[in-house]
Amino acid sequence: MAQELEAIFQKHKRERSSLISVLQEVQYKLGYLSPEAIAEIARFLKISESEIYGVATFYAQFRFTRPGEHEIKVCLGTACHVRGGERILEEMERELDIQAGGVTPDYKFSLEKVACFGSCALAPVMVVGKEVHGRMDPNRAKKIIRALR
């Protein structure tokens, strides 16, 4: 981990305004912000760990636990809400037997709800990893997950 972090740190100035970009890159690299990673960032930026947690927990993007291999995000924006996004989420919760925000015990899948991906014209929308799936219905969503099992 130390080497990966060092590579990220080298791209940034050692100043407060780098904090969020550094957190983003670390999370992108490691999947989440581990206590060890936060400690390293604190050392690099000369900001206390508690202050970094203060910033990081403010933003919805940051997570502090290990995500699943496949990150599933169900959109519950306005257009998805009006077109039944909640039904997709419920189906996923049933299918994976976890609640939104959770991860399966084998770390294969994690499930999140998000506010909007901006693909509203194709609502309801679900994102698996980096792939955006539009015009979802519960059965199609289930098939996508089953194909990954």
């Binding site: 924006g77 901006g118 509203c120």
Partner: peptide, 11 residues
């Protein structure tokens, strides 16, 4: 920071 759910003009 187009945060309004239901909007994607800026994107």
């Amino acid at each position: 920071d187009e945060g309004d759910p239901g909007a994607f003009m800026n994107r």
